[in-house]
Simulated scan of single mutants.
Amino acid sequence: MDKDINRIKVMLAEKKRTNKWLVEQLGKDPATASKWCTNAA
């Protein structure tokens, strides 16, 4: 089965943003955003 496309990762790339920017905006832990962007959570 093909791996699902991760829209969070795609959106960040399209907007030239980083995981660090995302966690600052949401007030979340960097490890959480990393999991979101790698489909681990």
Rank of each mutant, 00 (worst) to 15 (best):
T18P: 03
K15R: 08
Q25R: 14
D29Q: 14
I5V: 15
T18S: 14
P30K: 13
R7Q: 13
T38Q: 03
T32V: 11
I8H: 04
T38V: 00
K35F: 05
A13S: 14
E24G: 08
C37F: 02
E14C: 02
K28Q: 08
R17N: 02
K35S: 08
V23R: 12
K28E: 13
D29E: 12
K35H: 06
K28H: 05
A13Q: 15
D4A: 15
D4W: 13
T18L: 02
S34V: 01
A31E: 11
V10T: 11
N39C: 04
Q25M: 12
W36T: 01
T38I: 00
K35I: 02
A41R: 10
M1A: 14
W36N: 03
W21I: 01
K16W: 00
T32W: 15
W36K: 01
A13F: 04
I5S: 08
A33I: 10
N19L: 11
D2V: 13
T32E: 10
A40R: 12
K9R: 15
R7N: 06
D4Q: 10
L26P: 05
N19A: 10
L12I: 04
N39H: 04
A13C: 02
V23K: 11
A13P: 01
C37I: 02
T38Y: 00
N19I: 06
V10L: 14
M11N: 06
A31P: 01
E14N: 09
L22M: 11
L26A: 12
C37Y: 00
L22P: 07
V23E: 09
L22G: 02
T18E: 00
I8F: 12
L12C: 02
N39V: 00
N6C: 08
K35V: 01
